[in-house]
Design a protein around this nucleic acid. Structure first.
Lengths: 146, 146
DNA sequence: TTTGGATAGTTGCACAAACAACTGTATGCC
DNA sequence: GGCATACAGTTGTTTGTGCAACTATCCAAA
C-alpha cells in the first residue's frame, strides 16, 4: 500500500472542494440567466428523477448523497414550484413516491444542455484522459469514505 | 484544443462534488469525536490565519473563495467562540484585521493532524501520481471558472 | 397476536451560502 | 475643498445542510 501522506498546502482545496463550488456557482448563474428559477440542489433531485421517475424520498437520499431532512425540504420546495408531486405508495404507507410534473419534464433538455456547456467551460484545455483520471480518483475517494 | 464534450452520466458527481462533501463530513465527524467544537467552514478560516495572521476580512474572502457576508458571519461565530478577534486597522478605518487568539493557536497542530489523517483515508489505494493529476485538473477547473 | 425493532418521513435548531441593499471610509479628480 | 466613485464590512432574506428527536408504519419473532 503506497504512502499517500499528504504534503501540507495541498490539504485545503481537496477538503473545501473549491472546484466543485466554482462549477456549481457557474451553473447556477447560467440557470438564472436563462430565467430558470431553480437551485442547483433542486436540479440535482430532478436529475435523478429524469433518470427514473417515481422514486421514494429514501432512494433520492441515496442517489443525491443527502440526509432525509434535506430531501424532505428539497421536495417541499420542488412541490411548491409545481415541479414534483408526492404520491403515497399503495403498498407501503410509510413511503412517498416522487413524480415529475409535466412542467419539470420540459426542463430536462434545456438544463442538461446548460450543465454540459458548464462542464465544457470548466474542463477547457484539460485532456480527456486526465479528466478520466480525476473522475476515477474522486470516485475512489467517495467509495473510501461514504 | 481537444473536444471535452462530457458524456452523460459523468455530469453529476463533478457538479455536486460528492467527493469533497464526503471528505468534509468525515473531517467534521473526526472533529466532533475529538471534542473540537468547530465547523469545517470555521476551520477553513483558521487554516488561512495560521498561514498568515492578521488578515483583513476581504483577504479571507479571496483565500477561502467566499463572499463578504459569509466571512462576516464566520468571523462573528469565531469571535463568539473566542478563537479570533477583530482589530480595526490603524491605517484604514474601513478594514478589520482578524487575529487568532491564544486558544486558536493551540488548535493548529491537532486539527491539521486530523485533516491529514482524513485525507490519507480518502486517498487510500490511490497512487501519488494519480492524486497529482487529479489535483492539477481541479486547479485548472477552478482557474477556468473563478 | 402482540410487541419490539427497523424503516420512511417530518420537524426544530444551529450553521452556512448567495444575493441585494445598506453604512461608513478612502481616494482621485475637478 | 467638494464630489463621485470605489472599497470594506454589515444586515436581511431565502435556501440548503446536519444532527437529534419525533410520528407513523411495517415486519418478524416470541
Amino acid at each position: 500500500m503506497p504512502n499517500n501522506h499528504f504534503k501540507k498546502g495541498e490539504l485545503y482545496s481537496f477538503i473545501t472542494g473549491k472546484a466543485s463550488t466554482a462549477i456549481a456557482r457557474r451553473l447556477q448563474k447560467k440557470f438564472n440567466l436563462a430565467g430558470l428559477n431553480i437551485t442547483i440542489e433542486q436540479w440535482s433531485v430532478l436529475y435523478h428523477l429524469w433518470k427514473e421517475d417515481g422514486q421514494s424520498q429514501q432512494q433520492l437520499c441515496n442517489a443525491t448523497f443527502r440526509d432525509k431532512p434535506s430531501i424532505t425540504r428539497l421536495v417541499d420546495n420542488l412541490e411548491r414550484l409545481n415541479l414534483v408531486k408526492r404520491v403515497p405508495s399503495e403498498s407501503d404507507r410509510r413511503i412517498n413516491l416522487i413524480y415529475l410534473t409535466r412542467q419539470a419534464q420540459k426542463l430536462e433538455e434545456e438544463t442538461m444542455q446548460i450543465a454540459d456547456e458548464t462542464l465544457n467551460e470548466a474542463l477547457r484545455s484539460v485532456s480527456p484522459d486526465r479528466v478520466d483520471v480525476c473522475k476515477e480518483v474522486l470516485q475512489i475517494v467517495y467509495d473510501n469514505l461514504k
